[in-house]
Simulated assay, not measured.
Amino acid sequence: MAGIDGFGTQFQRGDGADPEVFTAIGNCTNISGPGLSRETLDVTAHDSPDAWMEFVGSLKDGGEVSLDVNYDPDKHDALVADLDDDEPRNYRLVFPTTAAAQWAFGAVMTGFEPSAPYDDKLTATLTFKVSGKPVLS
């Protein structure tokens, strides 16, 4: 199977209203995550078969989402206020497929790191910690 072009993927931020309206965070150049993972519990006992360690699944973690953007202070500085939000905000990742697939989740912004090299464009990395179970549709 051929790959799917990632161009046009959007990371959208909810406004918290009812009904909630989502707006794309503009100028994204790279979107990574969420990095889903799961903890395990060691249930090895003295009578585990053939002395092999045994594990069962435990808590799941939605991981983080990281955005790299062409930083525009006029557009992106308003997002710095999200660092002050203690409660998760709704976000969604919308993929550019024919039947628009998306991941929706609550998240807390944990990082906003601008960069201003003398010989290149302004950039910033925004990081969000997923809270709860992402909904895939």
Rank of each mutant, 00 (worst) to 15 (best):
M1C: 06
A2H: 04
A2Q: 11
I4N: 10
G8Q: 11
Q10M: 13
Q10R: 15
Q12A: 01
Q12P: 01
R13S: 05
G14P: 06
G14Q: 05
D15T: 00
D15H: 02
D15N: 14
G16C: 07
D18E: 12
E20I: 06
A24L: 06
I25C: 05
I25R: 05
N27F: 11
N27L: 12
N27Y: 10
C28V: 14
S32D: 15
S32R: 14
S32T: 14
S32M: 12
G33Q: 08
L36S: 08
R38E: 15
R38P: 07
T40Y: 06
L41F: 05
L41C: 04
L41V: 15
L41I: 15
V43Q: 04
V43K: 04
T44P: 10
T44C: 07
H46N: 06
D47S: 08
D47V: 03
S48M: 07
D50N: 13
A51G: 07
A51N: 13
W52L: 09
M53F: 02
M53R: 15
M53Q: 14
E54D: 10
G57P: 14
G57L: 11
S58L: 07
L59M: 11
K60D: 15
K60A: 15
D61R: 01
D61M: 00
E64M: 04
E64C: 00
V65F: 03
V65C: 01
S66V: 13
V69M: 01
Y71N: 00
D72A: 10
P73N: 09
D77T: 12
D77Q: 11
A78G: 05
L79V: 02
V80E: 05
A81R: 15
D82H: 09
D82V: 07
D82M: 12
L83T: 11
D84L: 14
D85F: 06
D86E: 13
E87Q: 09
E87G: 04
P88L: 07
R89S: 13
N90T: 08
Y91P: 02
R92S: 07
R92A: 04
T97D: 15
T98Q: 13
A99I: 10
A100F: 09
A100K: 14
Q102R: 10
W103K: 04
F105H: 07
G106T: 05
A107H: 03
V108N: 12
V108G: 00
V108R: 13
T110D: 01
T110Y: 00
E113V: 12
P114C: 09
P114S: 09
S115V: 04
P117W: 00
P117Y: 02
D119G: 11
D119S: 13
D120E: 13
D120H: 11
K121F: 14
L126S: 00
L126K: 01
L126W: 03
L126I: 14
L126P: 03
F128V: 07
V130G: 02
V130N: 01
K133L: 11
K133N: 09
P134A: 06
P134L: 02
V135M: 03
V135Q: 12
V135W: 01
S137F: 00
